Amino acid sequence: MSNEAPTERSGRTKVAVDRAALVALMLVAAGTGCWAYLAPLSWHLSFPGFGLSWLPQLGPYNEHLAKDTGAMFLALAVLSAIALRRAADRALVRVAGAAWLVFDVLHLGYHLTMLHMYGPLDQVLNVLSLGFLVVLALVLVLPARHR
C-alpha cells in the first residue's frame, strides 16, 4: 500500500493522462498542419489519407483556406507542445484544452451537418475521429477526480 495521499496520487495520474492527451493532439495537429501548409493541394485532394478523401466533397480547392487551416493546426501543435512541457501547470493545460475544445466542438458540429456528403464508412470515421478529438480536449479541461 502506498503512503501517497489519494489527492496526490490522483493529481499525478491526471498529469499523466493530460500528457497522453496532449501528445495525441500535438501529433494530429502537427501532421495535419504540416501537410495542409506545405502541400495544400495534396491535403485537399487526399485528406485524411489511407485511400480516403473528405475535402473535395465540401467545396472547391482554395489554397489560401488550405494554408490558413495548416497554420491554425500548427499553432495548436505549438500550444500543445508548450502545455506538454509544463503539464503540471493546470492553468496552462486547461487553456490548451479550452482552445482545442472550442475548435473541436465547432469542427465536429459543422461536419455533423455535412455527413450526407459521404458514404457510410466515411460518415462513421468522421464522427469517430472528430469526436475523439473532443474527448481529448475535454480530458484537458476537466479537473482531476478526488476520492
Rank of each mutant, 00 (worst) to 15 (best):
A5S: 14
V105M: 09
L121F: 13
H146S: 13
L74P: 00
A137H: 00
A144T: 03
A36I: 05
G33K: 01
P120H: 04
G59R: 04
M72G: 07
A5D: 11
H107Q: 06
V141A: 06
V127G: 02
G31I: 07
P56F: 09
V134E: 02
L22T: 00
T7W: 13
F47S: 05
C34P: 00
L65R: 08
A98Y: 06
F73K: 01
H64N: 12
W54Y: 12
V78Q: 05
S10A: 15
G11I: 03
N3A: 15
H44W: 15
W100V: 02
L115H: 03
L79M: 13
H116E: 14
F103Y: 12
T113H: 09
L121C: 04
L38H: 09
L22V: 03
V102T: 13
L112P: 00
S129T: 13
L45E: 15
L76E: 03
S2P: 00
V78Y: 05
L115W: 05
H116A: 15
V15I: 14
A91D: 11
F73P: 00
V134F: 09
L138G: 07
S80C: 10
F73Y: 12
P56C: 08
L140S: 00
W54L: 15
N126D: 14
R94W: 06
K67E: 12
V134S: 04
D104L: 04
S46V: 07
A16I: 09
R12F: 09
W35D: 02
Y118F: 15
R85K: 13
Q123D: 08
A39N: 09
H64F: 14
D104E: 12
S42W: 14
L128Y: 08
P6E: 07
L92K: 01
L112F: 11
L121N: 06
R90V: 14
S2I: 06
A91E: 12
A81H: 03
Q57G: 08
A5L: 14
L115N: 02
L115K: 02
A24L: 13
T7Q: 12
R9C: 07
M1H: 11
A36K: 01
R12C: 08
A36S: 09
L106Q: 09
F50E: 13
P120W: 10
R86P: 00
V15G: 03
L22E: 01
G33T: 01
Y118C: 04
